[in-house]
Amino acid sequence: MSYFTLSLTLFFILIPLVLSKTLRLDLERDVLVATVRAIVQLLLVGYILTFVFEGNHPLYMLIMIIIMITTAVLNARKKGQHIKGITWKLAVTITTVEVVTQGILLGFKIVPATAQYVIPISGMMIGNAMVLSILFLNRFAAEVDAHQDEIELILSLGGTPKQAIHHQLIQAIKAGVSPTIESQKTIGLVQLPGMMSGQIIGGADPMQAVQFQILIIFALLTNAAISSIMLGFLSYPALFTKQMQLLKEQ
């Protein structure tokens, strides 16, 4: 695709701009900022990926993965600022997701250990773990807030923090894992996943694209389970004092 052809896609930006102006949605500035950021970030990533793929050196891959994890952690932690130590808890969770996924894929030689495979799959896994972490943190905060009296009741009867918060923790973990399971049920019927579509548009054999997609959705299921459960069990103790009292936001 030439840059001229690519520039024609800016028509897609014109439509929301015109709609926003006409309906006075006041979103023009946000649309323009998002557009410029998308162009700059993606072109930059394109150049960096070209460099990393051509170099194909493990160190470059490691640096890319560390940058991805750091960005994901910094983004997700905004939703968990009420949880003490949320930054390292997210870092441990997302790193574990990446290590387990790549460990299985590379350990069993399911994909070759080259940048062309490791980097895009890492991007999908880390990005997904970030989104699921945010989902979990939002739901967990809402559950605890709505059921403070039940949590305090269990503590008042001599229960431990883990017993007191068990129900809220399980609900938030389920809320984190369910969207992944639900989207797997309709995959291919309702939506063609982005990676598969990209491969098909890029000229790959559809069956090969499907095989890779199956690999990804299975990995995403592990990803969902690890990120919600691990973050949940790392986070809940921070909501209690040493004397087993529920910390309330003042």
């Binding site: 009296d149 039940e150 305090e152 269990i154 503590l155 008042s156 009867l157 001599g158 229960g159 129900h167």
Partner: peptide, 20 residues
């Protein structure tokens, strides 16, 4: 210990919350 204290000194809360 907190659980010992809470079983020695029981409290019935004003809202009488019930678990599911």
């Amino acid at each position: 210990s907190p659980p010992d204290l809470r079983t020695t000194v029981g409290i019935a809360l004003q809202a009488a919350p019930m678990i599911r």
